[in-house]
Simulated assay, not measured.
Amino acid sequence: MNAARILALDFDGVICDGMAEYWQTAWRTYTQVWQLERLEPSPGVAEKFRELRPLIEVGWEMPVLIRALSLGISTDRMQSSWQRIRDRILADSRLSGVKVSQQLDAVRDSWIEQDLTSWLGLHQFYPGVVDLFKDLPNRKIQPVIITTKESRFVTQLLQKEGIELSSEFIWGKELKRSKIDSLKQILDRGAKKSPAVWFVEDRLSTLTKIATQPELESVKLYLADWGYNTPLERAAALQQSRIQTLALADFATLGGTAKKGTAGKTEAADLVT
Rank of each mutant, 00 (worst) to 15 (best):
A3H: 12
L9M: 06
F11Q: 04
D12N: 15
A20I: 06
A26E: 04
Y30S: 01
L39V: 01
E40F: 05
P41C: 01
A46D: 08
K48D: 10
R50M: 04
E51P: 01
L52R: 07
L52Y: 11
R53Q: 07
E61H: 15
V64S: 02
L71I: 02
I73Y: 10
W82F: 15
W82V: 09
L90M: 05
R94M: 13
R94K: 15
S96L: 07
S96R: 03
D109W: 05
W111P: 03
Q114E: 11
T117V: 14
L122I: 00
Q124I: 09
D131L: 08
K140F: 14
I141T: 01
P143I: 05
E150P: 10
R152G: 00
R152Y: 07
T155D: 11
G162D: 13
S166T: 13
W171Q: 02
K176M: 08
R177Y: 07
G190D: 04
A191D: 06
A191Q: 14
K193E: 15
A196N: 06
V200P: 02
S205A: 15
S205K: 14
L207V: 12
T208Y: 04
T208F: 03
T212K: 14
E217V: 07
A224R: 10
W226E: 07
T230G: 12
A237D: 01
Q239D: 10
Q239L: 12
S241Q: 13
S241C: 03
D250C: 07
F251G: 01
F251Y: 09
A252S: 15
T257Q: 10
A263H: 11
T266E: 06
